[in-house]
Amino acid sequence: MTTPKPASSPRQVLLEVRHLKKYFPIYKGLMRKVVNQVRAVDDVSFFVRQGETLGLVGESGCGKTTASRCILRALTPTSGEILFREADGTVTDLAKLDRRGLARFRPQMQMIFQDPFASLNPRMTIFDIVSEPLYVHGMRSRAERTEKVAELLRLVGLRPEYMQRYPHAFSGGQRQRIGIARALALRPRLVVADEPVSALDVSVQAQVLNLMLELQEALSLTYLFVAHDLSVVKHISDRVCVMYVGKIVETAPTLELFAAPRHPYTAALLAAVPVPDPQRRTAIQELPGEVASPANPPSGCYFHPRCQFAVERCRQESPQLEEIAPDHFVSCHRAAELSLPGAVSHV
């Protein structure tokens, strides 16, 4: 299988993931015999260019969070490569590094969490939370850290006077800003945002998304944006990766993907987005069947049991990710012949 190669582009590739796999063993019995494996991430390849936002979308349980945690090396991948380009141009495979080797890369990649309540230690003040990365990386002077934390809080739109408060004094949106401040403390080059707005009120979502866009501009950040909400992804991403049962089914520039999806699953996802138009009363085309189990995936293309375009070949042969247009990769045997509807412009 070929990995998607970035087409000639002015921007350098910051992160390239090749054949990433993460299997979780299922144990049984007293002797903990491995009886099966959950293929949470099953041969995933993609790349993120410097300064862009790559949206990673899919239904719950499709492996997008697992993939993002493997990239941050919160989890150790079963196999595959995670190539990260440092500022001086050297490329390192993060998948092979141990705890000690990773220490150098920690400041360069940070994470924004989904749950603004669980991600802040309730027993620490905002100052302690935001300054911990600074302290761990050697900034021991309290005065220096106070100044830096004040700067970070201002950057995310909070008052520096808040820093002696505890997280319980803040609302969800404010907590998420604190989480962003912590993630930015070490000036990372890559920020992995794991559904950063899905736990927030809709009115607050837009504010946090816009803050993220402003910060990207100001600090030339690169985002890997994991989400299940397509409208959010469309708003923030330059390119989008669609995952289904641990595999990538389609990767394309955002507008192209929304206008002309080439994979039946992408088309189904787009069709499922509710349209805020009372005049449209067309019934939503629901996908038949259930999401395949990553512990027991179907043969051939994982999507074939639910695909209305499936042919005999789909049942037997697993499709490969292929570039059908510049920067547009699809994993479908019939990608070339199908003509699929895109999203309604409201999305």
């Binding site: 941050l72 919160a74 220490a103 920690r106 400041p107 990649m109 940070q110 994470m111 969490f113 989904q114 749950d115 669980a118 991600s119 802040l120 230690n121 027993r123 911990e132 990365p133 761990v136 990386h137 989480g179 912590r182 403390a185 070490l186």
Partner: peptide, 26 residues
């Protein structure tokens, strides 16, 4: 499994720091 423990881990905190500053006080 807590997010704030993962956050400390990603910040590069040592195991002891995580146990002493994040887990035990909790």
């Amino acid at each position: 499994e807590e997010d704030f423990v993962l956050a400390a881990e990603l910040a590069g905190a040592s195991r002891w720091r995580i146990i002493l500053h994040h887990m035990i006080p909790t």
